[in-house]
């Protein structure tokens, strides 16, 4: 049981890192104008993106659909 939980956490973080990298390389500029041209802060986001990746994917899609509706 413990081994399953540890493996699940590793898989979660691995997916999260992939999603996170994709997001900071390809997605962030489209959904947040303040990120345009700003690169140094992006690695700081990776831990949070890796932990919250399902929410990140959902919010990313949501913001991408309504892009332009934000400041």
């Amino acid at each position: 049981m413990a081994a399953i939980i540890v493996t699940a956490c590793e898989v979660w973080l691995a997916i999260g890192l992939t999603v996170g990298l994709w997001f900071i390389l390809a997605g962030i500029e489209r959904i947040d104008p303040a990120a345009r041209g700003a690169y140094a802060f992006r690695p700081l986001l990776l831990p949070g993106l890796a932990l919250l990746w399902p929410f990140v994917v959902w919010r990313w899609r949501q913001l991408a659909r309504s892009s332009g509706g934000r400041c």
Binding site: I31, D32, A34, A35, F41, F55, L63
Partner: peptide, 8 residues
């Protein structure tokens, strides 16, 4: 980071 305030 303030990014998260806007993103979340």
């Amino acid at each position: 980071h303030d990014f998260w305030l806007n993103f979340l």
